[in-house]
C-alpha cells in the first residue's frame, strides 16, 4: 500500500519560496503566472491491507511529525 501526503502552507502564511518561483517564471516570459505556492510531497510504502486504518495512522504521522500544524495543512491519498 502507498500513501501520498501533500504538505502545504496554510492560506495567509507568507511563502517566500513560492513568491521566488513565481518571479522566476515571470522572468522566463510566463506572464500568466499570478502566484505560486510551494509544498512537499511525501510517499510512504506501508505494510498491511486495511486502507482506512492505514489512513488514520498516516494522519497521526502527519500531526506528530510530517506537518507543522501551526503553518501547514496536509492531505492524504491512499493507493
Amino acid at each position: 500500500m502507498k500513501a501520498r501526503i501533500h504538505v502545504y502552507l496554510k492560506p495567509g502564511v507568507l511563502d517566500p519560496q513560492g513568491a521566488a518561483v513565481a518571479g522566476a517564471l515571470k522572468n522566463l516570459g510566463f506572464d500568466e503566472v499570478e502566484n505560486a505556492r510551494q509544498g512537499k510531497l511525501i510517499e510512504l510504502d506501508l505494510s498491511g491491507d486495511d486502507a482506512d486504518a492505514a489512513k488514520t495512522r498516516v494522519e497521526d504521522m502527519c500531526k506528530k511529525l510530517l506537518a507543522n500544524p501551526v503553518i501547514e495543512n496536509f492531505t492524504v491519498e491512499m493507493d
Partner: peptide, 16 residues
Amino acid sequence: IETGLLPGALMRNASL
C-alpha cells in the same frame, strides 16, 4: 518550537 515547548513557527527567511 517543534517540540511545542514554545509557541509559533520559524520559517525560511523572507529574503530567502
